[in-house]
C-alpha cells in the first residue's frame, strides 16, 4: 500500500461526520413522519346520501317560506316560491360555506355571514358569493317530500 492510498485522518473524519449527519437526518425523519401523519386526519367515508325524505309534509311549508333540512351530513334548504313551487338547494354558501336561509321579506335566499343573496333558482345575484348554490331535485309523493341529487 502506497502512502497516497492510505485514508487520511481528514477523510476518515469526513466519513464519520457524513455518517453522523445522515443518521441524525434519518432519525429526525423517522421521528417526525409519524407526527405529521398523526396530524393529518384520517379519510372520511364519502357521504353516500343520494336522497332524503324530509321530516315535514308539503302542507307544512307555505308559499314564500323556507325550511332547513339535513341532506346526509350537509345542510339543505327547501323553499316554496311565492308561486307555490318547491325547490331544494344545498344550504352551504358558495362564498365561505356559511349556512344560508330564506328571507321572506326579500323572497330571496340570504347568507348572514357576508350578505350574499341568491335568487329562487339559486343564482348568486348580490354580494360576494362567486357561484350559484347547488340544487337538488324535489319530488312530492303524497305526504312526503323527497329530495335527491340531480340525476
Amino acid at each position: 500500500m502506497s502512502e497516497s492510498d492510505r485514508p487520511t485522518a481528514e477523510s476518515r473524519r469526513g466519513f464519520v461526520n457524513w455518517l453522523l449527519g445522515t443518521s441524525a437526518g434519518a432519525f429526525a425523519v423517522s421521528a417526525f413522519y409519524p407526527v405529521v401523519r398523526f396530524i393529518v386526519p384520517p379519510a372520511e367515508a364519502e357521504s353516500a346520501t343520494s336522497s332524503v325524505t324530509l321530516p315535514f309534509t308539503p302542507a307544512e311549508i307555505g308559499a314564500n317560506e323556507g325550511k332547513q333540512f339535513r341532506f346526509g351530513n350537509r345542510p339543505g334548504l327547501l323553499v316554496r316560491t311565492p308561486t307555490g313551487e318547491l325547490r331544494a338547494f344545498s344550504a352551504e354558501c358558495t362564498h365561505l360555506s356559511c349556512t344560508v336561509q330564506y328571507r321572506t321579506d326579500e323572497s330571496r335566499i340570504w347568507c348572514a355571514c357576508h350578505n350574499g343573496f341568491f335568487d329562487l333558482n339559486g343564482r348568486n345575484v348580490q354580494g360576494p358569493p362567486p357561484r350559484p348554490l347547488d340544487t337538488y331535485d324535489v319530488n312530492v309523493r303524497g305526504d312526503q317530500i323527497v329530495v335527491s341529487l340531480k340525476a
Binding site: 332547513q68 345542510p75 348572514a112 355571514c113
Partner: peptide, 10 residues
C-alpha cells in the same frame, strides 16, 4: 347547530 342557518349579525 351545524344545520341551522347562520344567524343575522354574525
Amino acid at each position: 347547530d351545524p344545520f341551522a342557518p347562520a344567524p343575522a349579525g354574525i
